[in-house]
Simulated assay, not measured.
Amino acid sequence: MTALNPYARLLDEIPVDRREATVLGGVTAYWVYGPADADTTIIAVHGFRGEHHGLEPVVAHLPGARIISPDLPGFGETPPVPGRAHDLNLYAQWLAEFSRAAAPGAVILGHSFGSIVVAAAVAGGMEAPRVILVNPIGAPALEGPRGLLTRLAVFYYWAGARLPRRLGEALLRNGLIVRVMSESMAKTKDPGIRRFVHDQHDTYFSRFADRDVLHDAFVASVSHDVREYAPRIAQPTLLVAAQRDDITPIEAERRLARMFPAAELVEIPDVGHLIHYETPAAAAGAITRFLAPSDDGTR
């Protein structure tokens, strides 16, 4: 039974249009939310094993903005890029080309693994006036407070890639394991939101193309973090971090903020790595304030 979406009413008031773009010789599916004449356009990049639906709760709380939300190659409705390993270089190159095709010069937002992709692309020269990173990966995942669970995840994805294909695919899409992952990340005590989080993971967490793409993306997600790129990102940057994040501790996020030439850190209490599901209004509020015009009319 599908769980009630607590953000559905807000989201239903925002127009949305599905589109496609040709990027790196493949087709990228993306969704455009909000008014066409909005003052601000944001390209929003989802996290590992997710797809565009995951960021909809934040979109629901940004009704005046135009949000362009693609599915990463190999996830959701975007097929893998033909003939390429899906490593971080591929994803950063894809994002830069997608940005040029869909909304050149847009503000760029990344959540979790998307924060690494965004940071790599912007540091590599992708045009963006401002950068927003939600639950940024600000330290090596294997060194987080749940490093043991991350090491178990490494084994899980390794096994999924090495077993016979049918068994490997079944392991990687196993509903019980997906639920354990979901339970480990959720911090909210609200039963309705908790059911919604689990339903989202049950519905969308296994919409990857195949185990090879998933393994490539996982390796990229645990082999890099935003620290590599922060000093080369000159644009004003907003970090929206969770005080109970098990992947990047808040102390590491505070250190990360100091590595940028111009960064603002907003900390959200009582939430972990699922800001986009559990506290989207707080995240959207921080984003709105960050993008508000200054007294001289600039953004």
Rank of each mutant, 00 (worst) to 15 (best):
S206Q: 14
S221F: 09
K189H: 11
P70E: 08
A153W: 13
D295E: 15
G105H: 03
H86S: 01
R162V: 01
R166D: 13
R165I: 15
V178A: 13
A121W: 06
R258I: 00
Y91T: 07
G74H: 12
P57I: 04
P63A: 12
G47C: 00
A119I: 06
E264Y: 00
S294D: 15
V131W: 11
I233S: 03
M1R: 07
Q200M: 14
Y157A: 12
H52K: 11
V107Y: 01
A292L: 08
P236Q: 13
Y229A: 07
V32I: 09
R227G: 11
V27F: 05
G147P: 07
A283N: 03
D246L: 00
F113S: 08
E183D: 14
F155I: 13
A220G: 04
H46Q: 09
F75W: 01
I116C: 00
A139P: 07
V271T: 12
A263I: 10
E127M: 08
I14Y: 07
L256C: 02
V134K: 00
H215V: 05
I116M: 00
R166L: 12
E264N: 04
A286V: 02
S206K: 14
V219K: 09
D295K: 14
E264H: 02
A120C: 06
P15A: 13
I233Q: 04
N174L: 03
A257P: 00
V118F: 07
E97I: 08
E51Q: 15
M126L: 14
L214F: 10
T237F: 05
P73E: 07
V266G: 03
